[in-house]
């Protein structure tokens, strides 16, 4: 689509999307509302805040018009959505990341890692665990567990894409940090 929102308008729309999600408005309906807002703004040249007010208040109005009851708080929703497997997965990833960092640091410094284990062994094992965990997360995200996607009524496309820049950031920052560990250990150790 050639039409593009300005950054501030997009930020307002993002806030609205989140506010509608929190209010349990169905994804298809959220897509309709966002498309209406974009259409209205393009037609009138108005600012979203002038035309629709604050994102949260507009989300309240939309939810009321659709007869969607306000759900319990954001935190309760978040906690309810978490399973023990998620928490265990987070713990495993956390420990493996620590061990990988420690392994790389020791490797750089030419020392042995935690519990006197060979640093290359710790780093390799942690890398394997992290690789498996990452693969699991990516497959889960790819398999479309999101059965209530925000669909653009005009194109049928998912309106909440995962841009390449976000992927680059998610992969790049940890890689950079781990490389820094190796270099740091080297600089300190020699």
């Amino acid at each position: 689509m050639e039409y593009r929102l300005t950054t501030t308008d997009q930020a307002w729309c993002d806030d609205l999307l989140l506010a509608l999600r929190v209010r349990d408005v169905p994804g298809a309906r959220i897509g309709e509302v966002l498309a209406e807002v974009q259409s209205h703004l393009a037609e009138t040249g108005e600012e979203p805040r002038d035309a629709f007010g604050a994102p949260r208040e507009y989300a309240d109005q939309v939810a009321a018009a659709l007869g969607v009851s306000a759900p319990d708080g954001v935190w309760r929703q978040l906690v309810r959505g978490l399973s023990w497997r998620d928490l265990a997965g987070a713990a495993v990833i956390g420990v493996a990341t620590y061990l990988l960092a420690d392994g790389l640091w020791s490797l750089g410094a030419g020392e042995s890692a935690v519990f006197g284990l060979p640093s290359w062994l710790v780093a390799l094992a942690a890398l394997l665990v992290l690789g498996v965990a990452t693969a699991r997360i990516v497959t889960a995200a790819r398999s479309g567990r999101d059965d209530d996607a925000v669909i653009d009524p005009r194109t049928g496309a998912d309106m909440v894409g995962f841009p390449r820049s976000a992927v680059a950031l998610l992969v790049g920052v940890p890689l950079l940090s781990l490389a820094a560990m190796l270099v740091g250990g080297y600089l300190v150790g020699w």
């Binding site: 498309a35 209406e36 209205h40 035309a51 007010g53 939309v62 009321a64």
Partner: peptide, 23 residues
């Protein structure tokens, strides 16, 4: 009439089956 007032009214009318919409 602001957009923030108008579109919820239209959504309500559509939910009640009094109007239909198409893009």
């Amino acid at each position: 009439v602001k957009g923030g007032t108008l579109y919820p009214i239209l959504a309500r009318l559509e939910a009640d089956g009094l109007v239909t919409s198409s893009w």
